[in-house]
């Protein structure tokens, strides 16, 4: 019991770090699903692209002599480039792989998304490198940048991840709730045809949704690189799966649900690896998913499906 409590705060921090990244990925899944009812399986690879773009900025400004500009500025630049790049690629993907299939049977865009996922992964493998890239653990944020709160020792990079994810989510909430385009997004996700008849430019809203979702995933990719130091062209697959799981646990289509699902999944994994065994963390994540869905078939915060006849 003693060790249980002494490990608790540390585990919470780890879980929140992981959870915020999952939440960032899950938001993109959920937003796209809410509007198009499309499971965007290429979303995990967009996250991977974000991580690589961030790394590209990092090696541009971080030569062997040390940083050319202040570290904080580098991180901001990494985030900006990764988010914009991921967003643009996602728009291109939407335009060429999903838009032609908007009226097709539901499974066709799913397969097309798998194809896009293959293309993105192997493009990165051919043009960048098939080997994993590494940040080097000490370069960006020094290893001794640790905040101590009693027994709790939090590394600055974890605070950065949690903080950045919070800021993005607050901004997203503001955007969706308060702005004109946000209102258009909510309208389209409630009823696409109805919104189109009311004069909402549906294509514009869809493009915007893809951009925002991908930008969040790209930011998640950069943040993961900062905390865990390494990236691979295949990293998007499992991350995408986890983000998808988080989105469904929270109730797919609901944005607060995606965040809740992401945090829950991250916490569950952190607690399993500390108190049970790190090998079982994926098992526990998916068992949790199955149980939550069996108790609440439309996710924690999803609206139950109503069928009109």
């Amino acid at each position: 019991m003693e060790t249980f409590f002494s490990l608790l705060p540390q585990t919470l921090v780890n879980g929140l770090t992981l959870g915020s990244v999952y939440a960032l990925i899950a938001l993109g899944y959920s937003m796209v699903y809410g509007i198009l009812k499309l499971l965007n399986f290429a979303h995990g690879d967009i996250y991977m692209i974000g991580a690589y773009l961030g790394y590209g900025v990092f090696i541009m400004f971080f030569t062997e002599q040390g940083a050319l500009i202040p570290t904080a500025l580098i991180i901001v630049l990494m985030l900006v480039v990764a988010m914009t790049g991921a967003g643009v690629i996602s728009i291109v993907v939407e335009r060429f792989a999903y838009r032609p299939l908007r009226y097709a049977p539901r499974i066709a865009p799913l397969i097309s998304a798998l194809g896009v996922s293959f293309i993105l992964q192997n493009m990165v493998q051919i043009t960048v490198s098939p080997r994993p890239l590494s940040y080097g653990s000490d370069t960006l944020i020094p290893r001794n940048a640790i905040f101590e709160l009693g027994d709790l020792r939090i590394h600055a990079s974890r605070l950065l991840v949690i903080g950045a994810a919070m800021i993005f989510m607050l901004f997203l909430t503001y955007f969706v709730r308060q702005t004109r385009l946000g209102r258009a997004m909510r309208a389209v996700s409630t009823d696409l045809d109805g919104a189109a008849m009311m004069g909402v430019d549906v294509n514009q809203v869809i493009v915007l949704t893809f951009f925002i979702g991908a930008a969040l995933a790209g930011a998640g990719g950069v943040l993961v690189g900062i905390v865990f130091f390494s990236l691979r062209h295949t990293m998007g697959f499992l991350a995408g799966l986890k983000g998808f799981t988080a989105a469904v646990v929270g109730g797919i289509g609901s944005m607060p649900g995606a965040v809740l699902g992401g945090l829950l999944l991250g916490l569950a994994e952190a607690f399993t690896s500390v108190y049970l065994s790190a090998t079982y963390k994926d098992v526990v994540a998916f068992v949790m998913l199955i149980f939550i869905l069996l108790v609440k078939p439309s996710g924690l915060m999803g609206k139950p499906l109503l069928q009109k006849v």
């Binding site: 293309i119 192997n122 051919i126």
Partner: peptide
């Protein structure tokens, strides 16, 4: 210059492109 020299990645790339193109041309 690139694709023919890395067949392992290229063949998956081609399979992926085939999937997307075929789905767009014949969604059913």
């Amino acid at each position: 210059t690139r694709l023919a020299l890395e067949p392992s990645a290229t063949r998956i790339l081609i399979v992926g492109a085939t999937l997307v193109v075929l789905m767009i041309v014949r969604p059913h």
